[in-house]
Write a protein that binds this DNA or RNA. Structure first.
Lengths: 245, 245
DNA sequence: CGCATGGTTGAGGCTCATCAACGCCCGTGG
DNA sequence: CCACGGGCGTTGATGAGCCTCAACCATGCG
């Protein structure tokens, strides 16, 4: 199958991981027109302030949602993997209040708003799934907000790793207690609200305590129980159907 | 008019502040059945883990969305005023991943999910407005996340005050450069991810620099320009129709 | 009057940021 | 083939921002 189909597969798998998907809905989704582009790390998918007329579906690689402040400060608001449509909201709101960018080399399929709107008008079940996805995104913001506001760096990072592992597991991107984590420590620090130096030290701490290992873009969860306990991790907010590991 | 109508008025005014509302939609909304209760500060409207069958519309007073962690840590995720339906999401997702509680003495009108669903199925324009409200809530999470992650306490608090003023202004609850702020410093600290002691000191700083005053539950914006500048405040995320002050 | 709640102040210390340097890996070009 | 450079990770030193603890004050209420 052509590479763009692989991305659609991921989207379908993701929707399947959070709800039901009928055969017709699958088929209807597969007819969506899209133009694929490959982006380099750091390149914008959508810029803050834009009024996009299309959505970007991540086919592979990672992307992020972010805001920038003065003095080079950046906060990453969410991380996105294959199957995600990070700018789905742009379908319903005019102006982007944040940017979306590739974190790794990433293939993105752009789908015209028009086509997507039409599909969702036709398939109400599919529309409900997309709304559900937006609600899960909101729940994830809440989880991150709680972490950045009230969890020390160590627990916060543990929590993020639990989340990223489960999300990837849900769409079949994770292995046995391991999953890709192809982003830099600097990106991690902007996601966690920390400095890159401190991220480095906390990582060493997590490794040193035997909870994880992280090398070559692969995260290995060495001890899920202890990691989840350290993070006080409760997966409810991800609203996944399957049971966690 | 009876007190419960006042709350509905606030809801309609709020929906009106973020979109269009037809006469029929107004009327249809006014027929919603609801049971009003008055809550004391700290009392839960919905508990984490609950599977509610009704939504709560705030008629007066303030409420908050929150998560609790071990050791008494609490993060307030959003603040809610008259006209808000903080647990609107419960219409679409089964389990609450957080709690909602009154911060002041507050009147809350409970609306059965069934009635609300039926209304929204009937009035698609109204449904769109409610979804829009959910998207704005998500945008507000992002703004808070950015603040807690990357803004020092002083700017973060300035930003929150800008937001709270504009939100109340949009529904007619604010006066000339002043608005209610009827919550304790401890609540503020849990919203900002700070300690109550530090909130107290930053407040004195903001007062000392002449940007605001805050006494008796009333926030006065003494210098909007400087406050907004200190906060790097950009109101886009609130998606309000009217122009700010 | 006494008590509870919330606001205020001071002292001391911990978490985390900043700055600066260095090492590693890898791709690139002379 | 090796020198160079850039991105990324790592380390140490220093200090700022914020937390914790503890006490005290102001207000309102029974």
């Amino acid at each position: 199958m052509p590479p763009s189909d692989h991305g659609l597969t991921m989207l379908l798998r993701k929707l399947d991981s959070i709800g039901q998907l009928s055969a017709e809905e699958r088929q209807a989704t597969e007819t969506l027109p899209m133009k694929t582009r490959v982006l380099d790390p750091g390149q914008d998918i959508v810029q803050e302030g834009a009024r996009p007329s299309r959505c970007g579906l991540v086919l592979n690689g990672w992307a992020c949602r972010y805001k920038v402040l003065s003095m080079g400060r950046r906060q990453i608001l969410s991380l996105h993997i294959a199957g995600d449509i990070p700018d789905l909201e742009s379908l319903y709101s005019e102006v982007m209040d944040h940017g979306i960018a590739a974190l790794t080399r990433a293939a993105v399929a752009f789908i015209p708003h028009e086509s997507l709107s039409e599909l969702l008008a036709r398939c109400s079940g599919l529309a409900a799934l997309f709304w559900r996805d937006l609600l899960i995104a909101a729940a994830t913001y809440r989880a991150w907000l709680t972490g950045v506001g009230r969890r020390p760096a160590y627990e916060r990072m543990a929590h993020l790793f639990c989340e990223l592992y489960l999300r990837q597991q849900a769409v079949g991107l994770a292995g046995e207690h391991r999953c890709p984590l192809p982003i830099t420590q600097l990106d991690l620090s902007d996601a966690l609200g920390l400095s890159n130096v401190h991220v480095n030290r906390v990582l060493q701490d997590l490794r040193g305590k035997g909870l994880i290992s992280l090398r070559g873009g692969t995260l290995v969860i060495e001890e899920w129980q202890r990691l989840a306990a350290a993070a006080e991790f409760n997966p409810t907010y991800l609203h996944l159907k399957g049971r966690p590991a």
